[in-house]
Amino acid sequence: MGEISIKINIADRVYPLRVNMEEEEVIRRAAKIINDRIKEYQDNYAVRDKQDLLSMCVLHYATATLKAEKKRVDEDTEVADKVYQLDQMLDNFFSK
């Protein structure tokens, strides 16, 4: 599919972007999630500076990304261990 031009509003600033048509919905949802998080920080903390709110938002999502990545690596390691154990059991069974 082709590229389209869209405008995304994040923290009261408009960003013109060229994106693939199939990415548009994801990008718009991401911008909404970011704006919702910024509003939450604005409502719950005495922070009004947009730069500080954006920094808090970035920290939140970077932390969440790292946690998800670590969880995936841990789960991959666990699956690999179980596959290894199963392989050993099958080797023992068939070598008798």
Rank of each mutant, 00 (worst) to 15 (best):
Y45P: 09
V26Q: 07
C57Q: 04
E22R: 11
Y45M: 08
T65F: 14
V26W: 01
C57A: 04
N20P: 08
L66N: 01
M56F: 12
D36E: 09
E24H: 00
S5A: 08
D91Y: 14
L86T: 11
L17T: 05
L90P: 04
Y61E: 12
A31R: 00
Y84S: 15
L66R: 00
N20W: 01
L59G: 06
Q51L: 08
D91G: 08
F94K: 10
C57F: 02
A30K: 00
K96L: 13
K39L: 07
N20M: 04
K39Y: 06
D12R: 09
V19H: 01
R48N: 10
Q51V: 14
A62E: 02
E3M: 00
V73C: 02
I4Y: 03
S95Q: 15
A30E: 05
H60A: 13
D12I: 02
E75G: 07
D49E: 10
E24P: 04
I10G: 08
A80H: 10
E3R: 09
M1T: 10
I6G: 03
L17F: 06
F93D: 14
Y61N: 12
E40R: 14
L86R: 09
Y41F: 15
D43Q: 14
A31C: 00
L53T: 08
A64V: 11
V47W: 06
N35S: 10
E78G: 14
E78F: 12
T77E: 04
D87E: 06
A46F: 05
N9H: 08
E40L: 15
Y41E: 07
C57N: 03
A64G: 03
